[in-house]
Amino acid sequence: MNDEESVMPALPGPSVRRRQLGNALRRFREEANLTAEDAARVLDCHASKLSRIENGQSGVRARDVRDLLDRYRVDDPAARVTLEALARSSYQRGWWHDYSDVLDPGYIDLIALEATASDVRNYQTLLVPGLLQTESYLRAVIGAHPGGYQEEEIRQRLDVRAARQQALTRESAPLRLWTVVHEAALRHAVGGVPAMREQLAHLRELARLPNVTVQVLPFDVGAHPGLDGPFALIGFPDLRDLDVVYLESLTGGRYVEAPEQVRQYAHVFDRLRAIAASPKRSLAFIDRLRDDL
């Protein structure tokens, strides 16, 4: 196999998945006590090519990932499936690529990660989590954006959100969502009272899904570990060192990928869910808020 066959250019744009894959392959190679030159011989390519794979600068085919994992003696089937899926996703054109002209690259990467991830741990302060938003609620959020959007672009963003939300109800391994929502987000009547009543009812209904857990962080907890703002932990339980944190801002999303920093966010989330109302009490709380509107 020559270099061109073993290392093909991945789809342009987001690269978080390639960096995840490269980091994991590097770790497994080092655990196997192999040099980059040793591993490159598996793919019949130069060590520089392997370096670009491990740095997330180049894509690598799933079959080559299998060969590398065989050489590294990685027998864990879950790890192999996850890494091969990440490799394939770098070449497969997902539905989200049709919206690349209107979406921030970081947001596109978020959607792609959710397509291959197994769980998301999300903390929100002022908004209902995107995966749980209704169309009316999201339309109000989009309409409040200072940049302003034309109706066609608003429609496209609504379509993207609806497609993204299907990850929660897909037949094969639906995405597991555990969210801690601050009380402020639920009392903020985004879109007006009717839209917020609909949103709270929708939130209550989705929380009945076996793969969705909703907890409310009430005002009376006072100071808490989440004061620095919202975040989303995108997880791969069988390979936790692939977990990343997504941080959203006015100018676009960014990612925290360093394992020690990701672990800090995971610790914060664990503390938040420990002090938040239980899932059962949270649903009762949501019902009371809706009745009071």
Rank of each mutant, 00 (worst) to 15 (best):
G229E: 04
V245M: 08
T125E: 15
A162I: 08
L126K: 12
L200G: 08
F236E: 04
Y255W: 13
P230G: 12
L206K: 13
I275E: 05
G226K: 07
D98V: 04
G106F: 00
L250T: 07
V268A: 13
H202L: 09
S278V: 09
T169D: 05
R121E: 01
L86I: 07
I53W: 03
D238Q: 12
G143T: 07
V268C: 12
R161W: 03
R161F: 02
L289T: 04
T116D: 06
Q133C: 08
R61T: 12
R288A: 14
L127C: 14
A258F: 11
A167G: 02
A32D: 01
M1T: 10
P129Y: 04
L203M: 06
T213E: 08
R204E: 09
G106M: 05
E5M: 07
K280D: 15
A189V: 01
W95R: 09
E54G: 06
K280R: 14
R157W: 01
A276R: 07
T134R: 02
G191T: 08
L293G: 01
G226E: 04
R71I: 04
A85V: 03
R66F: 01
R80D: 05
D104C: 03
A39Y: 12
D159A: 15
I275L: 09
A162Q: 14
P174A: 06
D243M: 13
G253N: 06
W95D: 09
Q133S: 03
K280Y: 13
E198R: 11
